[in-house]
Write a protein that binds this DNA or RNA. Sequence first.
DNA 1: GATGGCCTCACATAAAGATGTGAATCTGCT
DNA 2: AGCAGATTCACATCTTTATGTGAGGCCATC
Lengths: 216, 216
Amino acid sequence: MTPPITIVYYEDNRELREGISFLIQATPGLELLGAFPNCRQVQDDLRGLQPDVALMDIDLPGISGIDAVPIVKAASPGTQIMMLTVFDDEDKIFRAIRNGASGYLLKHTAPADIIAAIFDLSRGGSPMTASIARKVLLHFQQPPPSPAAQPDDYRLSARELDIIKGLVAGYSYKLIADELHISIDTVRSHIRSVYDKLQVNSKTEAILKAMREGLV
Amino acid sequence: MTPPITIVYYEDNRELREGISFLIQATPGLELLGAFPNCRQVQDDLRGLQPDVALMDIDLPGISGIDAVPIVKAASPGTQIMMLTVFDDEDKIFRAIRNGASGYLLKHTAPADIIAAIFDLSRGGSPMTASIARKVLLHFQQPPPSPAAQPDDYRLSARELDIIKGLVAGYSYKLIADELHISIDTVRSHIRSVYDKLQVNSKTEAILKAMREGLV
DNA sequence: GATGGCCTCACATAAAGATGTGAATCTGCT
DNA sequence: AGCAGATTCACATCTTTATGTGAGGCCATC
């Protein structure tokens, strides 16, 4: 017999709270340790109960569910947190995630799926409603769009890339020359070409440009 | 009547391919335009078919599903891509996401959930298996831990910060002096202090360190 | 009221970088 | 064969940085 997954639940809407509570209690393998309408006692609750899972509504009166997340994590580090919300507000999602929430469901999720999500969560997964997952993924695709829409190709040669890498690494001309087994005058010469191509005229500008444009 | 969601499917395992294909064809509202065992023709396929959804196995012979993602996106920008895989290999997941995949399911997902995921996907969601979503979330939680564990406080004074900002902006000593209405010797003096505190001994190192440590 | 950090400035020298000019070798492409 | 670009090197000159040394005024803490 595996021990049941212990749960605490924060939700201000009484109807919803009682509905989900009943659902949890009716599910074998889940054990509801407490269901609360607000987060006023959240620190004490968690410290005492040490549940496996905390279900948190986002928009709670007083301390919001988001602000409660770090408190929960501090009071009971082993607890996995799942946020429940009606709105898929981007800002709130990311604040909750950064604070340490692991799951994220919209409240319109079917009861059976909520239960499945609780099991997923305690198994180390991060159940997410698809629309929320999309927002998360978009933030990953944001950095790389640069290669997609890359207007700037400075057509640096292989050797010129070696040199700019050296600069970005913080090396002096002399060090770069040693590293590449060429003379310092050759390094100068390449650097001249790099400056031409990057349209800059100092080491600093070249380094900054190379870093910002991801040339290295 | 809404038009059906059109689908192409790449999967080298014949049994699985035929199973899922049958499932899709049996589902009202879904239309399978093609199921292929490899990506050899992916560009032509997509250009011609312009499906709403592409299901891609990750480990395909020849061109991998990951490498196919950008090709799909280029040939048919409107197509939403869902990756299917047996392994939740972190590296592959992120490569696929960065390439532009929108959904990510493990193959052990129940058939009914795969179908549901296709609908989610075409509605603009990003269905993800919970274990994969967790890996994605962890990457979001990674950045913030740094401010928590911030061992380095270089205790730069206000003026020293002005100077390092100038350096990071790419200014020469002279420009910084003009900007701050102080003499170039004063700038030198401050820079000396900055170098001491940052434990560096060149403008380049100082700039790199300041950028990497987020001092600016 | 003394000590220490911060901000300011000056003068001096040595090292590093920027720029001009010129040139030889090698490669790939026309 | 010839041209373009990449790579290599040299010499010269000027500017920018790095570093040493010293110093006066301000402000806060002890």
